[in-house]
Simulated scan of single mutants.
Amino acid sequence: MSVQLYARDVGAGTPLVLLHAFPLSSAMWLDQREGLADRFRVITPDLRGFGGSLLGTDEPSIDAMADDVAAVMRRLGVTRAVIGGASMGGYVAMALCRRRPDLVQGLVLAGTRAAADTDAVRRERLRQAERLDREGGVQVLVDEVLPRLVGPTTLRQRPLVYGRVRGLVQAAPPRAAAWAQRAMAARGPAFDTLRGLTVPALVVVGDEDALAVQDEARAMADALPDAELLVVPGAGHLCTVERPDAFNDAVAEFAAALTRAAR
């Protein structure tokens, strides 16, 4: 059963629905709301349990998160949108493509993976979820997840960006983070969904991403029938936050081309 998501909704034009990374909230899309809302309608939901959205009582599931997004689009009167997802948001975006392809005008995948977790990664997620539940705090995320979210260039040259990401991680609700880790651990591969996609796609990856590496980005781009790949220099896993200028320019060009094609 879907929960009602809190969503920021700014601008006008072709809708862009941007889904945030783990364990952040829609606050990560500040630069996109400011940089893209003069040309597009930018909708940034808080996925269930994060930011201003309730967690609900469903079993952990990426599909449930995708159904939440479909429901918020319906509530906002959006029949089709460019769906963008970063990291965990990419998993949700791919699930939405599988469950509600009619809602997807184009797809943007940033710092994410179409493969299921390896056994080792799955065990790590479940161990972290248990610690989050047991401790009732997010220190495990600060210690183990935060260091891999940004690249070394950001650590050296963009201390304010790193500080902002750290603050967003520290603000994560422990129960929601545990739920999301279990949902991600349970997800299957999405390559069949990508192969069946009938709309254009943009795959974005930071050249310093240690979590969703360039080979995985290329595998997604190769699986998609109509995709372009952008490698962002000097960015790690959160290329959307670390190099928002490069990300925004690419998304604006991609969405503008879709808008022209739809006329």
Score class of each variant (00 low, 15 high):
residue 5 L to S: 11
residue 7 A to H: 15
residue 9 D to F: 12
residue 9 D to V: 13
residue 11 G to T: 14
residue 13 G to Y: 04
residue 16 L to W: 10
residue 16 L to G: 14
residue 17 V to K: 08
residue 19 L to M: 10
residue 21 A to S: 15
residue 22 F to S: 06
residue 23 P to M: 11
residue 24 L to Y: 14
residue 25 S to Y: 01
residue 26 S to G: 15
residue 27 A to P: 06
residue 29 W to G: 11
residue 29 W to R: 14
residue 33 R to A: 11
residue 35 G to Y: 09
residue 37 A to S: 15
residue 37 A to K: 13
residue 39 R to E: 13
residue 42 V to R: 13
residue 47 L to I: 02
residue 50 F to K: 00
residue 50 F to R: 04
residue 54 L to K: 13
residue 54 L to N: 09
residue 56 G to R: 06
residue 58 D to E: 15
residue 59 E to S: 15
residue 60 P to C: 12
residue 66 A to K: 04
residue 74 R to H: 15
residue 75 R to G: 09
residue 77 G to E: 09
residue 78 V to S: 03
residue 79 T to W: 01
residue 82 V to H: 12
residue 83 I to N: 04
residue 84 G to L: 06
residue 89 G to D: 00
residue 92 V to R: 00
residue 94 M to K: 12
residue 97 C to L: 10
residue 97 C to E: 08
residue 107 L to F: 09
residue 107 L to W: 01
residue 108 V to N: 11
residue 111 G to I: 02
residue 116 A to C: 03
residue 116 A to N: 02
residue 122 R to F: 03
residue 127 R to M: 01
residue 131 R to C: 01
residue 140 V to G: 02
residue 140 V to T: 09
residue 142 V to P: 02
residue 142 V to R: 12
residue 150 V to G: 04
residue 152 P to W: 01
residue 153 T to M: 05
residue 155 L to I: 05
residue 156 R to L: 03
residue 160 L to C: 03
residue 161 V to L: 13
residue 165 V to I: 08
residue 167 G to F: 06
residue 168 L to H: 05
residue 178 A to E: 10
residue 178 A to T: 10
residue 178 A to I: 09
residue 179 W to K: 01
residue 180 A to C: 14
residue 181 Q to D: 08
residue 183 A to P: 04
residue 186 A to G: 15
residue 187 R to S: 09
residue 187 R to C: 01
residue 190 A to Q: 15
residue 190 A to V: 02
residue 192 D to Y: 07
residue 195 R to W: 07
residue 196 G to S: 13
residue 196 G to V: 09
residue 197 L to K: 12
residue 201 A to D: 09
residue 203 V to L: 13
residue 206 G to H: 08
residue 208 E to H: 02
residue 209 D to W: 12
residue 210 A to N: 00
residue 211 L to C: 05
residue 213 V to Y: 02
residue 213 V to C: 04
residue 216 E to K: 10
residue 219 A to E: 07
residue 222 D to I: 05
residue 224 L to V: 05
residue 228 E to S: 08
residue 229 L to E: 07
residue 232 V to W: 04
residue 234 G to R: 06
residue 235 A to R: 05
residue 239 C to R: 00
residue 239 C to K: 02
residue 242 E to V: 04
residue 248 N to S: 03
residue 248 N to P: 01
residue 249 D to W: 03
residue 250 A to G: 12
residue 251 V to G: 05
residue 251 V to R: 02
residue 253 E to C: 11
residue 256 A to W: 09
residue 263 R to F: 02
